[in-house]
Every structure is written in C-alpha cells, then in structure tokens.
C-alpha cells in the first residue's frame, strides 16, 4: 500500500442547523469507515481559514485574504491505497463532493 494525500478543497456553504448536523454526521461516518478499514495513514487535519505566505529568497511575508481564495484547502488526510486508481475510488465517497467541493488526490513521494 502507498500513501496518498487527499486535500479537501472548497468552502462549506451555509446551512440550517439541521443541514449542518446532517453534513457533519456524514463526514464522521465516512472517516470512521476509512479508519475501520485500516486505510488512514495519518489522521485528518482541519485547517484554520487564515493564511500567511512567505515568498522567495527575501522571505517576503504577505497576508493572504482567505475569503478571496477560490477553492481553498480546508483540511487533508493521508490514506493508504494500492494505487492512484484505488485512491480516486476512495475519494469518491467524500461527503464534501455532494456540496460541489473537490478532492485533490496526490501520491506521497517515496524516497528510493
């Protein structure tokens, strides 16, 4: 099995308490299922909506206006999969996709 990083992109649209609870419950079930199948290599990390960017040899520090990013990464998880195809298959289950989000699937580079 190889490690793949799933980057969860896209903002959560506002919803009623009932709707938000439904979404939360779906996510919890999905992650739990991955974990029970032994597919989680590193637990998921939710990210704050705050970003600083440090650029170039001058180490220029800029504030990134999070609200202006198009589909920001809101969290990620590292999973185990046989290959890219398998990792994509797993990603299809992500509840964030139902709200038109995106999962970016990236293989972790192995040091030869």
């Amino acid at each position: 099995m190889t490690e793949f990083v799933l980057l969860f992109e896209g903002r959560v649209p506002p919803g009623s308490p009932q709707e938000m609870q439904k979404r939360t419950q779906k996510w919890i079930h999905w992650i739990q299922e991955l974990s029970q199948k032994g597919l989680v290599a590193f637990p998921g990390c939710p990210l704050e909506g705050v970003m600083k960017r440090v650029t170039g040899s001058k180490r220029e520090v800029t504030d990134v206006l999070f609200s202006e990013l198009k589909d920001p990464v809101c969290g990620f998880i590292i999973i185990l999969a046989n290959d890219m195809e398998h990792a994509v298959e797993i990603s299809r289950g992500c509840p964030g996709l139902d709200l038109e989000g995106t999962v970016e699937v990236r293989q972790v580079m192995t040091i030869h």
């Binding site: 959560v12 938000m20 919890i28 939710p46």
Partner: peptide, 16 residues
C-alpha cells in the same frame, strides 16, 4: 452560530 457549526463540521469530521 453558523461559524460554530462550520467549525464543528471541520473538526468533528476528523476527531469524531
């Protein structure tokens, strides 16, 4: 309140 629910969604999805 909406913000608290969003945060719960983001955190609880991974932590339970």
């Amino acid at each position: 309140v909406q913000d608290a629910f969003c945060r719960a969604l983001e955190v609880w999805k991974f932590s339970g």
